[in-house]
Amino acid sequence: MFRFIARRLLETIPVLLVIITATFFMIRFVPGGPFTAEKAVTPEILRNLEAHYGLDQPLHRQYFNYLGDLLRGDLGPSFKYANRTVNEIIFDKLPVSLELGAWSLLVALCLGLPLGTIAAIRRNSFLDYLCSGFGMVGICIPTFVMGPLLALLFGIHLQWVNVSGWYGPADRILPALTLGFVYAAYVARLTRGGMLEVLNQDYIRTARSKGASELRVIFKHALRGGLLPVVSFLGPAIAGILTGSFVIETIFQIPGLGREFVQSAFNRDYTLVLGTVILYATLIIFLNLVVDVVQVWLNPKLKFE
């Protein structure tokens, strides 16, 4: 297993390089630059600006300069937020997104897994419909509807919590629920589907016929196989959750990183785009590695290849 992980980690380097290179050049071909503004700057000032940020050098030179800085751990200055570096922005905001992500993930798993499992065991019963139906809420009501609804209900109508902000512990509740419901829905549906696949497999029948208790069958055997699709889904999903959500952060005025992913592209903030992409890519690669390891653990028949 260690050889497997070591090899995968080694593979990360070329993958990251491809991502960085592609992003670096893609964003340069997009119309508009970091200094494109409604009130146009004069050509002289634009030249000064480009010189200031080294954008006047040949593209390949800029690319290698960027890679050089990257090796030293320097992601460069932000073009938009003039007195902040990309490193600072990420270190400031990532913890917020990580925290929100962790709470949301908790909501998603605590709701999704039981709902999906119960639905699968009591398949096609009223309980199944109830659980599945509840699981569907997160899919039917998109976050940009759910967020304001919760804010109106709990913030304005009941006045239990603030409608937005990120100060006290109570401020975590609404955003975590809003984001969590979406993923809970996916987890519930995928768990139900995965469990149904497994509950009819021979080895479950064998376990049952050997007189194992139903709970034991479910937890020891069925969940293992049944969670396979959930786990595959969760890899990229967790990367998405942990790096923040633009919609949630905007609705609840949360100083997280999700907004930077979206805004940096709109601002043509080249360095910030690259910085966030590198972060996300690293997470994706790492989590997909974790998924592959967990999949082998869940299914002992598999081997590390």
């Binding site: 304001p148 804010a151 913030g155 304005i156 006045q159 409608v163 937005s164 905007t250 609705i251």
Partner: peptide, 18 residues
């Protein structure tokens, strides 16, 4: 000074006295 990009969020904050 609060940087609030969503007008709806801002209006809700106004309504609750924030």
């Amino acid at each position: 000074f609060y940087p609030i990009e969503s007008m709806d969020t801002e209006e809700r904050m106004f309504r609750t006295g924030q």
